[in-house]
Design a protein around this nucleic acid. Structure first.
Length: 241
DNA sequence: CGATTTCAATCATCTAAACG
DNA sequence: CGTTTAGATGATTGAAATCG
């Protein structure tokens, strides 16, 4: 290693493929990450995890930073890192807080699918509630709260049943799973509608390929193939990062 | 049993004769 | 020339065999 160079200089060299400059850069800016995560530290999550997430943000900032912005790197990087951490808390919270609620939700989704077949129309909240012998208010609440949650990882992480974990399919490594989780979420967002839906059915709802096939109007064989393709794609994209 | 792979049929895309 | 036709090559498909 060598004496301190400015961030701007280092970035210049990183752009040219200088690996040494990169590690030097990370080391130099870890203090910045620390100063940010200090504000977030809570008991629920270790500082180490937080730091890793912060570094994800740092790398994002590094990749997207444009010298023509005419601002100091740190000015640009801080909001990005903050965003990354905030996003993690949001995602993390929604999963941990509502696990039992989520399970109920999954059941509701299944019931809804079933009713859809039986009634031949989109079931009302009332009908779902009746079928499950629940209060309408509970059903509505669960649906509203969970509507947009795609918890493709973590969701089932401590179920004793036989959960399928997308994470395991995509990654072989055990470590650095926090970083992996974050970027996996990113990559899933980039998939097209049908692919996301397939993952949702498969890994959130644990549906059979055959049932998914019916839903998507394709054959079960195609579901198998499509699923394999998606896994492969995610794997490749994560491997590079 | 559910998931995957195999295999033959079918479809799409390209190439090059064979015309008018 | 343009376009029509024959065929070749490759991708996609689902039923059925096979796997775990």
């Amino acid at each position: 290693m060598e004496k301190t160079a400015s961030n701007e200089e280092l970035i210049e060299r990183i752009r040219l493929g200088d690996e040494e400059a990169k590690s030097c850069f990370v080391q130099q800016n870890s203090a910045l990450v620390y100063s940010i995560i200090r504000r977030f530290s809570r008991q629920r999550i270790s500082n180490e995890d937080l730091f890793q997430i912060g570094c994800v943000g740092l790398m994002k900032a590094l990749n997207n930073f444009d010298t023509s912005y005419e601002v100091k790197f740190s000015t640009y990087a801080v909001p990005i890192i903050m965003g990354e951490i905030k996003r993690f808390f949001r995602d993390d919270g929604s999963i941990r807080i509502s696990r039992s609620l989520k399970e109920g939700y999954l059941q509701m989704v299944k019931t809804k699918e079933m009713l859809l077949q039986k009634l031949n129309h989109e079931p009302t909240y009332q009908e779902i509630a009746d079928a499950m012998e629940l209060d309408v208010a509970d059903v509505i609440l669960a649906f509203e709260a969970n509507q947009f949650i795609y918890s493709l990882d973590e969701t089932i992480y401590e179920n004793d049943g036989s959960p399928i974990l997308l994470e395991d399919k995509v990654s072989n490594k055990k470590e650095e799973d926090v970083v992996m989780k974050v970027s996996l979420r990113d990559e899933i967002q980039k998939l097209d509608q049908r692919e996301q839906l397939l993952l949702h059915y498969r890994y959130d709802l644990s549906m059979k390929q055959e049932d998914i096939a019916k839903k998507l109007n394709i054959s079960q064989v195609q579901v198998s193939r499509l699923e394999k393709k998606i896994i492969k794609k995610l794997k490749e994209r994560l491997a590079v990062a």
